[in-house]
């Protein structure tokens, strides 16, 4: 007899546990405000990344087309996987030979966004931008030149 009681208890306990689960899913079905979907391409305007989001490395230029890079190469040294190549040139300003930035090459395809380059840069010349749509048709487009055409280092001008 106890066996039958146990059996019936089993059946009702099982049904009850199933009903508890169904209550949860049922709750979400009738509460559409719990939906968390973000419709991505439509919400481009309102979608804003956090300030510290590491999208891609950029070199800010001011309105006079000046950047802060002194071509010291510390970022290149600190980069764990060679995503940064700093190519410098030597120019003579006021009779002094000076090391200047020629091309700052950044390989987005190799970057692991570890933030070491930005943190170690002594002159805060580079920073991460909050862009995130990096898809391109050709891999070579991911290799970027960060300093703009004919730009100069702002420190060189002052001296």
């Amino acid at each position: 007899m106890t066996g039958i009681v146990e059996y019936i208890k089993d059946v009702f306990g099982a049904l009850k546990s199933l009903w508890t689960g169904m209550k949860v899913t049922g709750y979400y079905f009738v509460h559409p405000k719990e939906i968390v979907t973000e419709q991505y391409p439509e919400n481009r305007e309102t979608l804003k990344m956090f300030d510290r989001f590491k999208g891609e490395l950029t070199m800010p230029h001011n309105e006079k087309n000046e950047h802060k890079c002194t071509s010291c190469g510390i970022c290149e040294m600190n980069c764990p996987n060679g995503s940064i190549e700093v190519i410098s040139k030597f120019e003579t300003i006021d009779g002094k030979k000076k090391k200047m930035l020629d091309t700052y090459i950044y390989h987005l395809e190799m970057c692991t966004f570890c933030d070491l380059c930005v943190k170690t840069c002594p002159s805060s010349a580079i920073e991460f931008a909050q862009t995130f749509e990096h898809a391109v048709w050709d891999r070579s487009e991911l290799t970027k030149k960060l300093n703009k055409q004919d730009s100069v280092c702002s420190k060189d001008i002052k001296e």
């Binding site: 899913t25 049922g26 079905f29 559409p32 939906i35 968390v36 979907t37 419709q39």
Partner: peptide, 13 residues
């Protein structure tokens, strides 16, 4: 659609 609403999603849109 039903499974999407149950799972806090919108489903095909």
């Amino acid at each position: 659609k039903v499974c999407a609403f149950i799972q806090c999603r919108l489903g095909p849109m």
